[in-house]
């Protein structure tokens, strides 16, 4: 990460969003639940004496602070902790790297094999 004056301002803004998001007990509770698993917005709304719209607003504040992410599965809006999403993205890119390392190895092998094999000359 590049640290510059601009990044520092961004960091402070992020901190404001973060602490603002966690200053509310309902939002803290939503964040805690999202850590334990995935919850739909409607399932969360059943846990609190507030409307679905109010839950959605809380989730939006948590989203802006990058504490949770929301994504659609069928008709449901699923909320989950952003830390988990980050870990999963890292793991996924690591797997992708393994897939392509294997593919490149096989490509290299084909080039080497064909070079030394008169039955399968490369054109030109």
């Amino acid at each position: 990460m590049v640290v510059s004056g601009e990044t520092k301002r961004d960091d402070e803004e992020a901190a404001d969003l973060l602490f603002g998001a966690l200053a509310d007990p309902t939002r803290r509770d939503i964040f805690r639940r999202a850590h334990g698993g995935r919850f739909s917005v409607s399932a969360l709304a059943r846990e609190y004496p507030i409307s679905v719209a109010a839950v959605q607003k809380h989730v939006a504040v948590l989203e802006r602070a990058e504490l949770v992410s929301k994504h659609r599965v069928g008709r449901e809006s699923i909320v989950r902790a952003e830390t988990e999403a980050l870990v999963r993205a890292h793991a996924a890119l690591d797997h992708l790297e393994a897939v392509w390392r294997d593919r490149v190895e096989r490509m290299d092998q084909i080039l080497e094999t064909d070079k030394g094999d008169s039955r399968c000359p490369s054109p030109q």
Partner: peptide, 22 residues
Amino acid sequence: PVTAVNKDFDALTMTITAELHA
């Protein structure tokens, strides 16, 4: 053959670079 792997978790990209003797 692989000389570099770059992963960008924000841009969701993975770049693999290889040198091949051909």
